[in-house]
Design a protein around this nucleic acid. Structure first.
Lengths: 350, 350
DNA sequence: CTCCAAAAATGGAACGTTCCATTATTATTA
DNA sequence: TAATAATAATGGAACGTTCCATTTTTGGAG
């Protein structure tokens, strides 16, 4: 039953020592596995711990040896499946390595973000993986990387910050999918969703512009429409697009969530996505595969990016001066149906 | 710049005391806000803390006064939007109350679940909100509630466990939505998705059976189809349903995720959901609103249940013998289009 | 001024662990 | 068997905070 406590407070290493007839130091030895203790003694101690329901106190241990196994994960929007998948990737690696994660959701609020980060540091987090809220400035994260805690920015970089970074190749990905539309004959193409202040949007839009320029195709400023990076944002933005006198024939969306909103808005007006108008996304979340028509998008491997972020942080914790790394993940074109090709087409990607 | 550390280790209360020309006790006083310290002194100390970049060490503090502000949240599947919303609700109230959350994803693995729970306890978590993995037995969580840590089970109860509980009214909700289908004239109705061993499925199926019995409508055992509670599970299960010689005219799904998978499978075979076959879900996730046709489902208010779970846990932490509560949230019928009513119909719910 | 109460500040023990320098035990070799 | 080496086990200081019992300071009232 592991019950014998109840008398008072938690059971400590000292009571275990008493029960097993050894000193607290010996118990500590088996706990950490550091010294050499006789097998028989170790078993006796183990038995005592089970019997008394001992639970290790990492707070106390960390006090002495300045360590913890805590890592903070700060996510701007957990309800976005992309970030949920990212978190799962991160946790996969952390759990394998014996770390445990504080995972916090900030809802794009910078003040909540700094609050949770402070809490994490106060609790001794060894490092933090941060998907920064929208208006995060470099000074908000500066000083985090210094001193004891490590920092890895994930998915969203912060202009002007030197912190380590894991991102997909937004520019190349956007260029690739735009080129695909151009190859299909589209010339009037809109870029839709995301706020202009978002660095990720700037990167992706740059890729879009690259491809358009390569094809000597002018960008109509009226076809660059901002919105919140949510499904509702997509619905709204697409509404604006469809209200235009001279509609585009294709729409490149900031991400899958926006794209799905856009498809929805098109469907509501009786347009058939894929034939009447092409819509493409970015991220390749699970939903992109499942929506009808299936969404042509850019795969960035959310879980993989999460795992990569975690590994980078772990490296940095292990070796403080390994800081400052940048990983840019590949962005693969995934051709499905929403761009108007209902059969597997040969992608002229690159 | 708040930089002055770098010399060695973290800066402690003692260095602050030295810098401000007071004793460590006084610093502690302003930190906890407990004693009475002169305004001027407090400000001087505050300034020293800012200057030296002090960060409070909760591990050390907790060691002395046996407290922490940590709460664990254990989620079986973060990629399910329902649980993502639940987590957000939980974090909302925790953050308001000055707590910080360990949020862990178990991927339905009982062993990972016990591992993360152990880690949480070792780190001094004051309580745990648990959405148990599928095959969790009472003994897996027993002893958690005892002693120092509180426990609240959320969404999934564990047969045979006495722990506090927050769940939606699965039985009533399932009965309500089934009755709606019966009122629309359906008689041959399938129940699809979820594994038979899941308590939640048993509860919902019971509600389904209640409604069918009330309508003197027999349940065909061949129309009770299990599957994993995922989108793919829904696709697969619906495939089995549609392969039947004598197809049902309506399908009650275990949850929204399964229902969306089922709709997808139906659409792939050229069936029009809402006219050729009715499909309904459970949970009312955001996706249910956005899918086409919009999903008729049961709203349980995921965010609200999360908030309720957190509040219950907090109550229990504050007052140990407040344990053993149960909250059953209302389950509202949400009529949309997937059940074949394209206009707002008068629900004969009850 | 002196006295006294209230307010403000203090020093040291305690929390549960790890680490270090020792000491006790056992095994190995001459 | 003695000497040595290796292995096991130990006691106490230290980690950064809080709390308690005290001491010092402040400010009125007599």
């Amino acid at each position: 039953m592991t019950e014998a406590e109840s008398d008072k407070g938690r059971v400590t290493i000292i009571e275990i020592a008493k029960a097993a007839g050894v000193s607290k130091s010996t118990v500590s030895l088996v706990l950490t596995g550091r010294g050499s203790v006789k097998r028989e003694t170790a078993e006796r101690i183990q038995r005592a711990m089970d019997q008394l329901g001992y639970v290790y106190n990492r707070g106390a241990a960390g006090l002495r040896n300045a360590g913890s196994n805590i890592v903070g994960i700060v996510i701007n929007d957990l309800s976005n499946p992309f970030f949920a998948e990212l978190s799962i990737g991160i946790q996969n690696v952390l759990q394998m390595s014996g770390y445990v994660a504080f995972l916090a959701h900030t809802g794009e609020s910078v003040s909540q973000q700094s609050q949770v980060i402070r809490m994490m540091r106060e609790n001794g987090a060894r490092g933090i993986i941060l998907c920064p809220a929208l208006d995060t400035r470099p000074e908000d994260v500066e000083g985090l990387a210094s001193g004891d805690a490590s920092l890895v920015l994930s998915i969203r970089r912060i202009a002007g910050s030197q912190a380590s970074l894991v991102v997909p190749d937004n520019r190349a990905g956007a260029a690739r999918i735009t080129r695909h539309l151009l190859n299909l004959g589209h010339r009037r193409i809109a870029y839709v969703g995301g706020m202009g202040s978002m660095v990720v949007r700037q990167d992706r839009f740059q890729g879009f512009a690259d491809a358009m320029a390569d094809a000597k195709c002018a960008i109509d400023p009226g076809l660059n429409i901002e919105s919140l990076p949510t499904k509702d944002g997509g619905v709204r933005a697409m509404g604006a697009v469809l209200a235009l006198a001279d509609r585009p024939t294709a729409v490149v969306c900031y991400n899958d969530v926006v794209a799905i909103g856009a498809m929805l808005a098109a469907a509501r007006r009786g347009l058939s996505v894929g034939t009447d108008i092409a819509v493409v996304g970015f991220d390749d979340t699970e939903e992109a595969r499942h929506v009808v028509p299936a969404l042509t998008t850019v795969s960035v491997d959310a879980v993989g990016l999460g795992e990569r972020s975690a590994r980078m942080l772990l490296d940095q914790i292990a070796d403080r001066n390994a800081a400052g790394a940048t990983y840019v993940g590949e962005a693969k074109l995934i051709i499905r149906e929403s761009c108007g090709i209902h059969h597997r087409a040969l992608a002229a990607a690159g």
